[in-house]
Simulated scan of single mutants.
Amino acid sequence: MNLPNKLTIFRVILIVPFIILLLGGQAGWFGENTFVTDMIALAIFIIASLTDLIDGKIARKYNLITDFGKFMDPLADKLLVCSAMIALIEMNRIPSWVVIIIIAREFIISGFRLIASDNGVVIAASYWGKFKTTFQMVMICLMIANFPQLQILTNIIMWIALILTVVSLIDYLVKNKDVMKNTK
């Protein structure tokens, strides 16, 4: 269990207090002031997001890449982002159809990677996928913060994240179309 893998596990663990604070604040579990719980939840989300950046850099720099990390790191990212977006639906801060498109893309890519893996092909993350993830995380941060003055910016970022979600899906499928042709 190396440091990058510990950071990945830490990211998964952080989802629990993040969701409790975010939804518990809305439910009134911590009093009337949801601003405080939203800001603490936002801080936890940012810390969790940064562990994704840090664990990958450490793993690559010190050659600490493991099978566990290859499997768990993207799963931890999906759990964090999907948990946040589903909570934001409940808080009426993001339309459900946007989240459905984003989660559908994740299922499609995960299935595609599974098929590729069965055929001995590893599909690396693309720049489009990395841009998508960055914009999704910024979008989530803005939606958690929920500052009325930033609503137009939040909507623009949401649309960019949505477009990048679709573009990255198309990019993966086009670049790796031979994977489907060579299935067992």
Score class of each variant (00 low, 15 high):
residue 44 I to T: 11
residue 111 G to V: 04
residue 83 S to T: 09
residue 171 D to M: 05
residue 106 E to I: 02
residue 129 G to Q: 03
residue 32 E to G: 15
residue 106 E to W: 05
residue 166 V to H: 00
residue 36 V to N: 15
residue 121 V to F: 05
residue 88 L to Q: 04
residue 48 A to G: 06
residue 143 M to I: 00
residue 158 M to L: 04
residue 89 I to W: 01
residue 55 D to K: 07
residue 150 L to S: 14
residue 174 V to H: 05
residue 42 L to K: 04
residue 49 S to A: 12
residue 68 F to W: 12
residue 173 L to W: 00
residue 123 I to F: 07
residue 49 S to R: 02
residue 77 D to W: 01
residue 174 V to S: 07
residue 56 G to Y: 06
residue 22 L to V: 06
residue 83 S to D: 02
residue 27 A to H: 01
residue 109 I to Q: 06
residue 120 G to T: 02
residue 97 W to G: 06
residue 33 N to L: 12
residue 34 T to W: 05
residue 20 I to S: 06
residue 81 V to D: 02
residue 56 G to I: 09
residue 17 P to S: 08
residue 173 L to G: 09
residue 10 F to H: 04
residue 76 A to F: 02
residue 86 I to L: 12
residue 170 I to M: 02
residue 87 A to Q: 03
residue 69 G to W: 03
residue 115 I to E: 07
residue 109 I to T: 01
residue 120 G to P: 09
residue 147 F to P: 11
residue 91 M to W: 00
residue 168 S to M: 01
residue 149 Q to D: 15
residue 96 S to M: 11
residue 69 G to H: 15
residue 116 A to N: 13
residue 114 L to H: 13
residue 50 L to A: 15
residue 109 I to H: 02
residue 80 L to A: 06
residue 30 F to Q: 14
residue 100 I to F: 12
residue 39 M to A: 15
residue 116 A to W: 04
residue 184 K to Y: 05
residue 82 C to Y: 03
residue 25 G to F: 10
residue 1 M to S: 08
residue 140 I to K: 03
residue 32 E to Q: 13
residue 178 D to P: 02
residue 156 I to G: 12
residue 111 G to I: 04
residue 69 G to E: 10
residue 56 G to L: 03
residue 83 S to A: 11
residue 153 L to Q: 13
residue 59 A to L: 10
residue 77 D to L: 02
residue 100 I to T: 13
residue 152 I to R: 15
residue 60 R to L: 11
residue 65 I to R: 06
residue 177 K to W: 05
residue 43 A to Q: 13
residue 146 N to M: 01
residue 14 L to K: 00
residue 92 N to H: 10
residue 4 P to K: 09
residue 135 F to H: 09
residue 25 G to R: 09
residue 164 L to W: 00
residue 175 K to D: 08
residue 73 D to M: 03
residue 171 D to G: 04
residue 136 Q to L: 13
residue 182 N to G: 09
residue 93 R to F: 04
residue 158 M to R: 07
residue 183 T to W: 01
residue 96 S to Q: 09
residue 25 G to D: 08
residue 147 F to I: 15
residue 46 I to H: 09
residue 169 L to W: 01
residue 46 I to E: 08
residue 43 A to N: 15
residue 151 Q to P: 00
residue 27 A to S: 04
residue 61 K to G: 04
residue 117 S to C: 01
residue 142 L to I: 05
residue 49 S to P: 08
residue 95 P to Y: 13
residue 3 L to S: 05
residue 179 V to G: 06
residue 50 L to G: 07
residue 33 N to C: 13
residue 76 A to T: 07
residue 172 Y to C: 09
residue 72 M to H: 07
residue 90 E to A: 08
residue 140 I to F: 00
residue 74 P to S: 12
residue 112 F to I: 05
residue 131 F to I: 08
residue 14 L to A: 09
residue 44 I to G: 10
residue 142 L to E: 11
residue 127 Y to S: 11
residue 113 R to C: 12
residue 87 A to F: 03
residue 179 V to C: 03
residue 179 V to P: 14
residue 109 I to D: 08
residue 144 I to G: 09
residue 64 L to G: 06
residue 98 V to H: 01
residue 159 W to S: 06
residue 144 I to L: 01
residue 3 L to A: 14
residue 163 I to F: 03
residue 82 C to L: 03
residue 147 F to W: 15
residue 15 I to N: 07
residue 12 V to H: 00
residue 180 M to Y: 05
residue 86 I to N: 05
residue 4 P to A: 11
residue 120 G to H: 03
residue 81 V to K: 00
residue 67 D to K: 14
residue 5 N to M: 11
residue 60 R to G: 12
residue 98 V to W: 00
residue 39 M to D: 15
residue 105 R to I: 01
